[in-house]
Amino acid sequence: MTNELIDFTLVSVAMLAIGIYGLAVKRNFIRMLFAVEIIINAANLNLVAFGRFLPHSGGQTLALFSIAIAAAEVAVGLSLIIVAYRMYQNVDIADFRSLKG
């Protein structure tokens, strides 16, 4: 079972779908950040899985880059949440409509 690429791919697909569901449905900024994280992780899983099954070190390297970028994204995203929360006292994305800068 673990020796087959398809299993990892299917897990990745499931997580992608869950992430898209979260992005589509949730209106809480933090929840949406969670959904983005889940999607990024699904992508990382695919990267590493393909890198393992087509033996190549590039998969892991790219996964490392991806995680690092995710860290950067989370730092900026949470700062945005802080700013938005300070302005609107809420984390509901529907309240952020007047965020024009």
Partner: peptide
Amino acid sequence: IKTMTTDEPAT
């Protein structure tokens, strides 16, 4: 990719 397996050593 359904049938893709490998026996090569890990990186």
